[in-house]
Design a protein around this nucleic acid. Structure first.
Lengths: 210, 210
DNA sequence: AATAATATGTGACTTATGCAACAGAAAAAA
DNA sequence: TTTTTTCTGTTGCATAAGTCACATATTATT
């Protein structure tokens, strides 16, 4: 995912003098963080699964992003502009590395290698984030639930290098991720099966088209 | 829009030795650029209006982004991942500054001030882009056409600091931007008028709610 | 192991949205 | 100016998608 920069090596070899790095663990359904204005928090998901979730005034829940191991999140990647609540929820037990910035690009005054390396590689990391966001926009601009499902499956299939895969989230969550009604999505999945485009055993998907 | 960095001063005072900057003009409906893989092009719209447009296999057109004066675009902000065609179309006469990078973060070997300043401020510029993308995602995750319209109007209203404003694009384009059918959108606009939430005289919108 | 909680799967019904088609207004081109 | 093109506004109809409600399966919790 990350262009040239190996985030994994980086995370496991970091050293920090500035006391601004914290590692915390969370259990399922706990709120990992809420996004607020003017805070520059950067988080790395070391293990587990988590979602960036928004609740709107109508009670609709939207999964804005879905995070897996080594994914980065935090206000650094999401300047808060509207007043809808944004929070990151643990979908399973999670370990998270928290990092608070004063200034994004300036080097750390304490000579902290972690901070400096991160600042150096931030442009690449942000560009990767942009790619994800653009993909998400492409997904959301699909006009029908069917097209959203097919595109989503195609993305996962490409990522997993296989036409058969387990969904990385529950079907309930997938509906909130695609921004469609769950039961309507289930109906469409049934139609996709009937049309022999997709097979489905529980949460395992098998793409049948070439 | 741009955090600390004044893009306007920057553009009008640039100097460049590396011959990689070009200024071009376009007339309405001309294709300014197409997005392709592995090219690092950065463009600045000096005047006019333009759209980043995607055409899918079903013939649907989606306006991915709408650009006005001083907006930045190009592959730097959009790594091409899918094989859908992406192009920037002039909506009126446009002047565009083109810039080709070899490496995004490295300083210019020719000591080109333009290049260096841009590289220095790229993180901020990209973060601003992220904000736009996130706003766009929030717009697209609105479940109904009504909610999309209301949120879009609210965004423009905030930007223009007025409850009355001219739409920055045609209604036909707005439908492609919100990813909904044009006639269905027109119908919803009529319903918004009937419900006294919005008034509309041609392409001028007046928000009536507090 | 028993209970509770959450997720999946489905159907009947309503509503929102897309589609096609057209007329008039506005804008662009000749 | 006149002509052509594009945009706006509207309708009838078909269909996709949301709502509600419930049964069953699966997964946590006690």
């Amino acid at each position: 995912m990350f262009s040239n920069f190996n985030i994994q090596n980086f995370i496991y070899n970091f050293s920090c003098n500035c006391q601004k790095v914290q590692k915390k663990t969370f259990s399922k359904n706990q709120v990992i963080t809420t996004y607020i204005q003017k805070r520059n928090q950067l988080c790395i998901l070391l293990s587990g699964h988590a979602d960036l979730v928004r609740y709107d005034l109508n009670g609709n829940r939207t999964i804005v992003e879905h995070f897996s191991k080594n994914d980065l999140f935090g206000e650094v990647f999401y300047k808060v502009t509207t007043n809808n609540e944004l929070l990151v929820e643990a979908k399973s037990s999670c370990t998270v590395l928290f990092y608070i910035y004063d200034e994004i690009k300036s080097p750390c005054s304490k000579g902290c290698k972690f901070h400096d390396t991160l600042a150096e590689h931030l442009p690449e990391l942000i560009l990767d984030k942009i790619t994800e966001l653009n993909t998400r926009i492409e997904l959301l601009t699909q006009r029908t639930t069917r097209d959203k499902l097919l595109m989503y499956f195609s993305l996962i299939s490409t990522r997993k290098l296989s036409k058969t895969f387990e969904l990385p989230m529950s079907l309930t969550d997938l509906a909130d991720y695609l921004s469609v009604d769950r039961s309507a999505m289930m109906r469409e999945l049934k139609l996709l099966k009937e049309d022999n485009l997709v097979d489905k055993i529980g949460n395992r998907i098998i793409l049948l088209y070439k």
